[in-house]
Simulated scan of single mutants.
Amino acid sequence: MQWMQWTKGVVSVHIRGEEPEQLVNRALAGGLELWNIRWTSGGSMAFDLSVGDFFRLRPYLRKTGCRVHVVKRAGLPFWMARAGKRKFFAAGMFLFFVIIYLLSSLVWSVEISGNKRITDEQIEQAAKEEGLYPMQWSFRLAQTDVLAKRLAGKLPDAAWVGVEKEGTRVIIKVVETTQEQKPELNTPRHLVASADAVVTQILAEKGRAVVSKNQRVKRGQTLISGTIGAGENTQTVVAKGTVRGLVWYEYNIVSPLTQTYKVYTGEKETKWYAVIGSRMLQVSGFGKSAFELSEAIRTEEQAGWRDWKLPIGRMKETVMEVVQEERKLTAEEAREVGLLQAKAELTVKAGADAVVRDEIILHEKTDNGKVYMKVLFEVEQSIIEEMPLVHVQGD
């Protein structure tokens, strides 16, 4: 039930007669809003509608010869009717809405976005100096455009500041002034091999390539030299370039023949919570869950009208039952699963641009419900790492 529907009041009805479908079609065509339309196990048609539309339903009942039976009433009008019979309860409700009004007049949170160089603490301090901080009364704040100008004056590195108020939340948006980026100061360097490999590609953007394609290199061996020229014309530069090569990795893989999967049974439990600010109060679904294993999904609804949000609402927690099921794999299937997992680990270790070119199973056996393998992977990857150049000057 949505908040607007709850405010208007909702009536759940069952329709009996020879042509309940005609009644629904005519009512919808006449502008009535019906929802949750369904057939009941008793053969009648059921749906929900607002209190106002319930009284507009009578002409359609007469035209179709149907009868209506109210099975449930919910919403603010019925709540107020019950409250009218209990003075103390009505007084409590009045006090409740007064408190809600007061809470909605407070600033509950101040959010900051768009800043990188300017810290949140600097912006929060500037906002506090202007009276903008959590738990401040909204009516004590200046207009948002005035606040924005004042904050911009207090933040020299901000090119523009915007202030937006959304219910009980205030958002400060900052656009920082652009600064000329200074080039990074790099010291002269060589590019050396990060692992034993066979070079498959070498491209020197700056510096001098000292190895060639299809050449075997050792870890630490210079690939692109940062020293260029000869004799008196020798100079050092920041070596840049791309070098890729074939690297070999040996993996010991253990893959079980039985795998466990999580399956939803379709059974679920629902719990409701009243939300006030950052606090929650459970109002239904008490007691220990009957499910041995479960997962919960939470959805929150905040009360409000259009863009005006109140610091109250409700949260629905759906607890779904899950069971663990086992699946038996063949030795071939377990082998493929193990190889895929090993390749995924290799991608993380060797880099996102790494490519597995070949795989050689050196040894394989099946024992105690598991497949054991020793596998050699041939991977093409970047094989460069930096090595600074150190000049040794004589006396």
Rank of each mutant, 00 (worst) to 15 (best):
147 L>I: 05
286 F>S: 08
242 T>M: 05
99 I>W: 12
53 D>P: 10
231 G>L: 04
376 L>R: 15
352 A>T: 11
239 A>G: 11
130 E>Y: 06
249 Y>G: 01
243 V>E: 02
150 R>D: 06
356 V>A: 11
255 S>P: 03
371 V>N: 05
374 K>L: 10
205 E>V: 12
179 Q>I: 08
292 E>Q: 12
315 M>E: 13
60 Y>L: 07
102 L>H: 01
206 K>E: 12
81 A>R: 12
320 M>G: 09
352 A>G: 04
90 A>G: 12
151 L>D: 01
163 V>H: 02
393 Q>I: 14
367 D>E: 15
254 V>G: 00
23 L>I: 04
79 W>Q: 12
119 T>S: 15
29 A>W: 07
222 T>S: 07
296 A>S: 15
367 D>L: 13
161 V>R: 00
133 Y>L: 10
148 A>Y: 01
50 S>D: 14
328 K>G: 07
109 S>G: 03
275 V>W: 06
231 G>T: 05
296 A>M: 07
264 Y>D: 13
352 A>I: 09
368 N>P: 00
108 W>L: 07
95 L>G: 15
377 F>N: 02
39 W>E: 13
49 L>Q: 02
299 T>V: 13
206 K>G: 01
178 T>Q: 14
386 E>N: 07
392 V>Y: 14
118 I>S: 03
290 A>E: 12
328 K>Y: 01
71 V>I: 15
187 T>M: 11
285 G>F: 00
160 W>E: 10
13 V>Q: 02
31 G>R: 04
386 E>R: 08
207 G>R: 02
194 S>N: 14
361 I>W: 10
304 G>M: 09
171 I>A: 11
168 T>G: 11
164 E>S: 11
302 Q>L: 01
55 F>D: 04
28 L>G: 04
354 A>D: 07
91 A>V: 11
210 V>L: 07
254 V>K: 11
165 K>P: 00
354 A>K: 06
116 K>A: 14
150 R>A: 10
52 G>V: 10
362 L>Q: 15
301 E>M: 04
158 A>C: 09
176 E>A: 08
209 A>H: 04
360 I>R: 14
381 Q>F: 00
250 E>A: 01
171 I>T: 15
197 A>Y: 02
149 K>P: 00
368 N>V: 05
323 V>D: 11
316 K>V: 14
338 G>Y: 10
182 K>W: 09
225 S>G: 09
333 E>H: 07
382 S>Q: 10
5 Q>E: 15
222 T>K: 06
95 L>M: 15
211 V>I: 15
297 I>Y: 07
244 R>Y: 07
215 Q>P: 01
262 K>V: 13
284 S>C: 03
83 A>R: 05
289 S>E: 01
19 E>Y: 05
203 L>C: 01
33 E>A: 05
162 G>V: 06
282 Q>E: 12
206 K>T: 13
140 R>G: 02
242 T>H: 03
